[in-house]
């Protein structure tokens, strides 16, 4: 029961990070770099928190969730590096 409660608390924290990180991309005043930072908050940190919550909820699915977490962090990191590199090109 406690574990269920803790996992739902982490899940709501992850959802809050999703909302906070996704809403600034509608604002046209921010630069693309700030948007990349907030997308990192949403897509890496929020999603990893959701993965942790799902692991606490259903521990028998750990191989699936571990593969998800590793691929998520690797892809998102390389992706934001490449997008930063494109936007920061000296023209």
């Amino acid at each position: 029961m406690t574990i269920t409660f803790v996992s739902y608390a982490i899940l709501s924290l992850g959802l809050y990070f999703w909302i906070w990180g996704t809403l600034p991309i509608l604002n046209k005043e921010h630069s693309i770099f700030y948007k990349l930072h907030t997308l990192t908050v949403a897509d890496s940190v929020g999603s990893l928190l959701i993965v942790v919550a799902l692991f606490l909820l259903a521990p028998q699915y750990w191989p699936l969730l571990l593969v998800t977490a590793i691929s998520l962090s690797l892809w998102n990191t390389i992706f934001s590096y490449i997008l930063g590199n494109i936007s920061d090109r000296p023209s």
């Binding site: 930072h37 908050v41 990191t77 936007s87 920061d88």
Partner: peptide, 8 residues
């Protein structure tokens, strides 16, 4: 990987 810094 950390949200605050980004290598460009």
């Amino acid at each position: 990987f950390t949200p605050m810094s980004l290598v460009t």
